[in-house]
Amino acid sequence: MDELINKPGVYGCVFADHQGLCLGVKGKASTESAGIIGAIAEQAAKLEPKSKMPIIYLENDNRSCAIHRTGTVTGAIFKNVHS
């Protein structure tokens, strides 16, 4: 997480376990979002059950959030978007 938070543009990251409970958080991210990102990853995976776990990318004009589940751990990375 220390490594991740030092990458350019990254301002926060959060990790959740299979129950949506927060494993760790760094930067400007909330522990409460752990449950939500777990739920988003779970719902997105249902769209293509036969494919491997998707990467969900949410973006607005100035920020973005990438969510990915590997095994039982779901991670979300929050980044500033530089246009």
Binding site: Q19, G20, L21, G35, G38
Partner: peptide, 12 residues
């Protein structure tokens, strides 16, 4: 198997 974190997030 329910997402406990999601339930906790309903608090707000």
């Amino acid at each position: 198997t329910c997402n406990t974190g999601h339930v906790l997030a309903l608090e707000k």
